[in-house]
Design a protein around this nucleic acid. Sequence first.
DNA 1: GGCCAGGCTAGCA
DNA 2: TGCTAGCATGGC
Length: 297
Amino acid sequence: MTPFIIPVQEPFDFQQCLIFLKRSKQEVMHVTTDESVRKLFYLGNRFVLVELKWDPEGIEVLLFEQDVSEEERIVIEREVRDWLDLDRDLQPFEQLAQQDDVLRPIFESYRGLRLIGFPDLFEALTWAIIGQQITLSFAYTLKRRFVEQYGESQTIEGVTYWTFPRPEVIATLEPEALRPLQFSYRKAEYICDIAREIVEGTLSKMALRQLPTEDIRKHLLQLRGVGEWTADYVLMKCFQEPSAFPVADAGLHQALMYHLGLSRKPTQEEVKRYGAQWEGWGGYATFYLWRSLYGNV
DNA sequence: GGCCAGGCTAGCA
DNA sequence: TGCTAGCATGGC
């Protein structure tokens, strides 16, 4: 199938997005090169490998599959737009950043970086729960084991691409099944419970996204394993809510300590007070601050 | 060896 | 309503 182009709105920088996608060598959900990223999409009945590259007209999307229908093409475009937050007008955030001593230099460094997320609700919730209270590197290790054990893969041109485990598969597991992967029993329980809710239909992104942000947040908080941090994280990364602000986040605290030149980490109250000026863009501010923590990869 | 990691729940006052 | 132990393990 011939490639197609997704136009983008300024500010947008494909290289900055690519650098973010390369942040962990342990990432299994996509494969990057110097100029492209490939990701396997599951379209309900088949897999399609998708490659994204920069083109002067926008993002070039190449599909490694014959006879992709127009409906499937539209689904893939939608997924890519959600994944890279392409429908966002970032200009208000740029204006806000220019008036903020912490954000100004960070925004200039990574200008055009989008809040890259997890369009799939099960993946977003699972990744957030995995990441609770452990180092990111260990979180990636756990995710890799989980995906390689329960996800599906296709090997194309000698490279293996994975899709995230489907809730239908995880819903059939007992939490004990995840213990050998070094999940804590609690996390395993939360993840299996959430998979069951999704399969049973009591938890669905399609239903939640109809609701106001505050109501989505309340629904998420009712799930075992989901506290304030996780609810805001999932609002940011799955519902693309730019104002969702995980005030308790350890990485955010570390970044603020560094950029404000503090000798200790800020308290949650101090974070709230400082973040008040990011009204509506707390999630983007947090994302850029996280980005500032891991250098230039 | 101690403490912190992109926290949350259950149990107790 | 507010506080804390316990969870699991890697990395500094």
